[in-house]
């Protein structure tokens, strides 16, 4: 565990008697940008609050930079948290919001001014120093909240769904911004998201969570191309998942035989990997949607419903049309059975 900067050991978290995170083990390296990814309600915020010290541990321990922090109060941990709701101070202007923590440290006046100005310019808000949060847009408030945490030079910066309240364009802008700030400062960052594309785009490593348990941990490449569980496969776009039984695969409506030998477990295909127009299986078009570069289909098949997509340039199938398709070996993801 020597390389771990933030280390969660057998951490269990509960609200009252309800255990939300049963047994979390996670090591994060110094300077790493880690994404905590998972569907809503899986315990991401809870985990962040525990690292920050806003929530006490039910069991286990958390250490930062080799020091056990399990009993250290939140205001002494040196951990920053950017709240999903920003949590800015409405009665203070942008400058004073950023200066808040520095003033508590009783730093010399000139140093405070210097650091606040630097913080504001890092997030591109120097011109709004005198504005109150209520007079700023969502994106500006988001950046102000980031600056407020950054000027404290935390050992670890936690960001809870930092991009979810922004519109699509701002989200892209903030993404780049976060990456740049992380590169410039080298601060270890853990950010929460329920959006796989955000995690893929930003993170050095992704922690995929489900019901408080880590499903898979790895690089973007690992999770996107080699998901190891059905849940991970589904989360990263292998939406057609079938159980392997002998020389056939089984869906909710029935079984079909496949033309290649597969290991026991599951087989999964992305919609784009489904071969449309020829093949041994029959389907009826149940739904069709135009999505720019692609046309997305829902087929009724002997297996049940499957999702497929085809380049928009290819001839379209109408609702109710019958066609042949194949689930080829090429493009199939094999998920070995759990033991």
């Amino acid at each position: 565990m020597s390389s771990a900067f933030v280390s969660l050991q057998n951490v269990s978290l509960a609200y009252g008697k309800t255990v939300v995170v049963p047994d979390l083990r996670l090591d994060i390296r110094k300077g790493e940008l880690v994404a905590l990814l998972g569907p809503s309600g899986c315990g991401k915020t809870t985990t962040m609050r525990a690292i920050a010290g806003l929530m006490s541990l039910h069991a286990g321990s958390i250490s930062i930079d080799g020091v056990d922090m399990s009993r250290t109060p939140a205001n002494k941990r040196g951990v920053g948290l950017v709240f999903q709701s920003y949590a800015l101070f409405p009665h203070l202007n942008a400058f004073e919001n950023v200066a808040f923590g520095l003033r508590l440290k009783k730093l010399p006046r000139t140093e405070i001014i210097g650091r606040v100005e630097h913080g504001l310019s890092t997030v591109g808000l120097s011109h709004l120093a005198q504005r109150k949060p209520a007079e700023m847009s969502g994106g500006q408030q988001q950046r102000l909240s980031l600056a407020r945490s950054l000027v404290m030079e935390p050992k670890v910066l936690l960001l809870d769904e930092p991009l979810s309240n922004l519109d699509a364009r701002l989200r892209l802008e903030m993404r780049t911004e976060l990456q740049r700030v992380q590169r410039d400062t080298g601060i270890t960052m853990i950010f929460v998201t329920h959006d796989q594309s955000e995690a893929l785009a930003l993170a050095d490593r992704i922690v995929l969570m489900k019901d408080g348990v880590i499903e898979q941990l790895g690089t973007a490449d690992d999770l996107y191309n080699r998901p190891e569980t059905e849940f991970a496969a589904d989360f990263f776009g292998f939406e057609n998942i079938f159980e392997v039984s002998g020389s056939s695969i089984r869906g909710p409506q029935g079984s079909v035989s496949i033309s290649f030998t597969a290991k026991a477990g599951h087989l999964a295909w992305r919609p784009g990997a489904v071969k449309i127009g020829s093949g041994p299986h029959k389907a009826t078009v149940r739904g069709v949607a135009f999505a720019g570069e692609h046309r997305e289909y829902v087929f009724d098949t002997g297996l049940g419903q499957i999702k497929a997509s085809a380049p928009a340039g290819e001839p379209a199938y109408e609702l109710g049309a019958s066609l042949s398709f194949d689930l080829p070996e090429d493009g199939a993801l094999s998920i070995p059975a759990k033991n």
Binding site: L54, A74, L81, F83, F89, G101
Partner: peptide
């Protein structure tokens, strides 16, 4: 008044009372 503001203040170094 949202309570996360107080938590933000604590993480910036305040005591609960502060």
């Amino acid at each position: 008044l949202r309570s996360d503001m107080e938590e933000a203040a604590v993480l910036l170094g305040c005591s609960r009372l502060g």
